[in-house]
């Protein structure tokens, strides 16, 4: 039984300049307690994928007909807005990228936590406050009673992200979508948060989608990885398989550009060029213009195929 099953997800933005296919046919599953790392550079569609799951796509964007997001067997693309609202924050929670921006600056932390509790449960304010306090303790915030009465600007960035995580955990969600929650933080705090999140997921069996551009972060965190490029998944598999034996030239490029011990003294590999505009995607494989091993066949879009057991890639030249 999977927690989340995404099939042929297509989220397009209908702008004046044309249709931007931010997400164009994405499939993946997440099992309970599993952490999926959704990796890609900016504009690859990874964040839009995350927002699509929560039904938080603003016009001019929308999820196109034919997409399917099944959460615990329930089809979310067909759900009523009121049902989606009830799921958001209680069964599926989200953690945002920039902790400085996610908490409302003019409301106290207790207001922002209590309203989240009361949005889904008919409980008294005292009970809601108690729940909020416990959630703060859970994410390792000292003297929670005092912190509850504070305003967000009185917290450091790392503390704010802990508060945001505590808010996400208030209702013990079955799925958390985390959108680069550590990129805005110092490296040391990043490590602490990663550790906490991993622990919390393991303890509660919460499934998680960790959206990031940083392959190094998910390498130590995720069970499985899906690499996105220009709105499509180009490679997916178990973390060890993808990191150690990447099949798609884009994944190889990403791994090659991460500095490590072995790369000292050598020139770092880099992927030439930049992400193509989503408004003007070339025919066939979107990566071909930057690909060192592109062939004529790349003018046709390759399918995502299982080249090794449980290891899929969308490339004509991928080999088992």
């Amino acid at each position: 039984m999977t927690t989340l099953s995404v099939r042929n997800l297509r989220t397009h933005f209908f702008t004046k300049e044309g249709v931007a296919k931010a997400v164009d046919g994405v499939d993946f599953d997440v099992a309970p307690g599993e952490i999926l790392g959704l990796v890609g550079e900016s504009g690859s569609g990874k964040t839009v994928t995350g927002f699509s799951i929560l039904g938080l796509i603003d016009p001019p964007g929308r999820i196109v007909e034919g997409s399917s997001i099944r959460f615990n067997g329930e089809e979310l693309t067909a759900a009523r807005p009121e049902r989606l609202r009830a799921i958001r924050g209680s069964e599926i929670a989200m953690i945002f990228q920039d902790p400085m921006m996610t908490l409302n600056p003019v409301l106290r932390v207790d207001t922002q936590m209590i309203e989240t509790v009361q949005a889904h449960l008919k409980v008294s304010e005292a009970d809601a406050r108690d729940r909020a306090r416990k959630a703060l303790v859970q994410v390792g915030i000292p003297s929670p009673d005092e912190r509850l009465r504070a305003y967000p600007h009185q917290f450091s960035g790392g503390m704010r992200q802990r508060v945001a995580i505590a808010i996400a955990l208030l209702h013990k969600p079955k799925l958390i979508v985390a959108d680069e929650p550590t990129t805005a933080l110092d490296v040391t705090i990043q490590g602490q948060i990663l550790f906490e999140v991993q622990r919390l997921c393991r303890e509660s069996g919460t499934a998680m989608i960790w959206v990031t551009h940083d392959l190094a972060v998910v390498a130590g965190l995720a069970d499985r990885i899906a690499v996105m490029y220009a709105g499509r998944i180009v490679e997916t598999g178990r973390t060890a398989d993808v990191i150690e034996r990447p099949m798609h030239p884009y994944t190889k490029g990403l791994i090659g550009s991460v500095p490590s011990q072995n790369t000292r003294g050598h020139k770092l590999a880099q992927i030439p060029g930049m992400t193509p505009s989503l408004l003007r995607l070339p025919r066939g494989c979107a990566f071909k213009a930057r690909c060192p091993i592109a062939i004529d066949q790349c003018n046709e879009m390759p399918a995502l195929e299982e080249h090794r057991p449980g290891h899929w890639a969308r490339c004509w030249r991928a080999t088992g």
Binding site: L56, F96, T102, A119
Partner: peptide
């Protein structure tokens, strides 16, 4: 702003 989107992600009603 992110905090408005976050408020929606928390499942708050439009009115709130």
């Amino acid at each position: 702003m992110d905090y408005v989107k976050f408020a929606r992600a928390k499942g708050l009603s439009e009115r709130r």
